[in-house]
């Protein structure tokens, strides 16, 4: 499963409004449901994982990475990205507040590794992450990813 097969313009939304971290995960999950990547159960599973792991899903400053298990309702591997209109606290003192949420769904351990590797490469480029967070349109954010496709 390559990176370009897992993300498309339909699964990117910028300046999303959310009152708390749960709603932020809900909103990113809705994009995954709308594009037939996961069942509704996956959203609740992502929230449960975040409740259990709490702060650990904020893997780099300003970026939350909610995910759950394949059996929690994944139809096809994908990820979705939202940027938040107002940054939200997820409870991670080092990496809060969160400005961008990347919902991730995988089917098994190996299939999605290429795509995850690409995502890690992107997130380790701080300049690029800042640009993504500050994108004015969905297309602009998608264009930053295109360099990696």
């Amino acid at each position: 499963m390559e990176f370009k097969e897992m993300i498309n313009l339909e699964r990117i939304r910028i300046n999303v409004e959310a009152k708390d971290w749960k709603e932020a995960i809900q909103k990113v999950g809705e994009l995954m449901i709308k594009t037939q990547c996961v069942y509704e159960s996956y959203i609740n599973a992502m929230i449960r994982v975040a409740e259990k792991l709490g702060p650990y899903i904020v893997i780099t400053p300003g970026v939350a990475f909610p995910h759950a298990r394949p059996e929690d309702g994944v139809i096809k591997p994908c990820f979705a990205i939202i940027t938040l209109k107002e940054p939200i606290e997820f409870g991670n003192p080092e990496n809060d507040p969160v400005k961008m949420v990347i919902g991730f769904a995988a089917l098994d351990d190996k299939q999605h590794l290429n795509a995850l590797q690409t995502l890690v490469d992107i997130l380790s480029n701080r300049e690029l992450v800042e640009k993504m967070m500050n994108s004015k349109t969905e297309q602009e954010l998608f264009n930053y990813l295109k360099h990696y496709i």
Binding site: V49, L53, Y56, I57, F65, H67, R69, F104, L116, V120
Partner: peptide, 13 residues
């Protein structure tokens, strides 16, 4: 990581 899912793979990479 907490559950041995994607976060630990990110760490591994």
């Amino acid at each position: 990581c907490g559950m041995g899912l994607e976060s630990s793979l990110v760490l591994k990479m």
